[in-house]
Simulated assay, not measured.
Amino acid sequence: MRLMSADVSNLPLGSRVVVRWRLPAPDPATGATLTDAVGTLVARDDDTLQVETSRGLVTVELARVEAAKEVPPRPTRRGAAHLAVSIEDLQRVMTPAWGAVERSTLGDWALRASQGYTQRGNSVVPVGSPGRPLSDAVDDVEDWYAARGLPAKFALAGPEGFDPGDDPLGALLLARGYSVGSRTLNLTADRDTIAAADPGGPAVVITSELTPPWLEAYRKTRATVEGATEAVLRDSPRVLFASITPGGGLSQQLGLRASDAAGTTPIAVARMGIGAGWAGLGAVWTDPAYRGRGLAAHLTAALAARLREEGTSLVHLQVEHDNTTAIRLYRRLGFDVHSSYAYLTQG
């Protein structure tokens, strides 16, 4: 079970955490020897960490930490937990779920570069303040990407169907000649709802390792960049790779061709990146010859069920707004539209 760990070295500064630690002496009122600090991790050194809680700043000696983990941002509105998070906070929790070869920050903004492999891996998440005037911040972003031979690209978020020109940053980028493209929906759901919608199917293999057969199948889904693709797929705080591979008694069940039944390359794959108290589903693919058999739904539900071992209960995914087939699948599994974003790319 990976619910909590005493190792706090991988907890990102700025994330919301719960830290359980031993008190110097039992609480005189209750006799308790342990207590929890819940809030934002604001500092950490070789001896202590500091958590900004609702009651103020708490400093904890690392030697007293019993367990700690990231937890989702505090809800900002009523409703189901997967819909109660703000648009900005959802952008924050989505950021570690998809990898990058290189990451940097500009104030609160997150910059990612991956040799051009995927838009998410080569774009800015402009959430919060960049720590300087917007125009200066955009100049700095453009310089950062130019140094890597890439155009600047911003993932600008808003409600479903929002107009980027109504956002101050969006208006500035449009005035600079940026183009709008790849409008994407953010879908969210509860882990147990997805797991309960499993249509059933063949055995699903889930591993934390990026295996050659999984990667071979993934390369059929899109153009890849040697080295960068592997780095992006591995670069999340915790990653799960799921696959369905032909063999055993699956030939008759799936109607496999004789050549496929003997193979080791998966006929369906999916990836889940876990970070910031959420899990992000991506890289879902089924061999065209075996679509319509519920394999994508089965893989997704199996990954959701596995999240119980990870102590993670909320799931997000991104899907292009006009991909009606995928949206219909995810809605059947219990996903709801939370928000959206559009890429604004330097011309």
Score class of each variant (00 low, 15 high):
Pro288Met: 08
Trp109Cys: 11
Pro72Met: 11
Ala155Cys: 03
Thr224Ser: 13
Leu23Ser: 07
Arg271Cys: 07
Gly247Phe: 13
Ser179Ile: 12
Thr245Ser: 13
Val65Lys: 01
Thr211Gly: 10
Gly121Ile: 07
Trp278Thr: 13
Gly158Glu: 07
Tyr343Leu: 09
Ser104Val: 01
Ala301Pro: 04
Ala217Val: 04
Ser313Met: 07
Leu62Gln: 11
Asp47Arg: 14
Arg22Gln: 13
Gly31Arg: 05
Arg78Phe: 03
Met94Glu: 14
Gly116Lys: 10
Ala97Leu: 14
Gly273Glu: 04
Ala289Asp: 14
Ala32His: 10
Thr33Lys: 12
Phe335His: 03
Val319Ala: 06
Val60Ile: 15
Gly263Asn: 11
Ile327Glu: 00
Gly39Lys: 08
Arg92Gly: 00
Gly107Gln: 11
Ala37Arg: 05
Gly177Ile: 09
Thr324Val: 08
Ser54Glu: 07
Val225Leu: 07
Asp108Val: 06
Ala196Gly: 10
Lys220Asp: 10
Leu90Gly: 01
Asp143Cys: 06
Ala97Ser: 15
Ser179Leu: 14
Phe162Cys: 08
Gly248His: 09
Val19Phe: 02
Thr48Gln: 12
Thr229Met: 11
Ala217Gln: 13
Pro213His: 15
Ala262Asp: 13
Gly273Ser: 05
Ser236Phe: 05
Arg2Cys: 04
Arg78Leu: 09
Arg219Met: 05
His82Glu: 12
Arg77Ile: 01
Arg92Asn: 01
Thr325Gln: 10
Ser236Ile: 03
Ala301Arg: 02
Ala68Asp: 02
Pro151Arg: 15
Arg2Ala: 13
Val232Cys: 10
Ala203Trp: 05
Asp140Val: 09
Lys220Ala: 11
Phe154Asn: 00
Ala296Gly: 09
Leu172Val: 00
Arg132Cys: 11
Leu173Pro: 00
Gln253Leu: 15
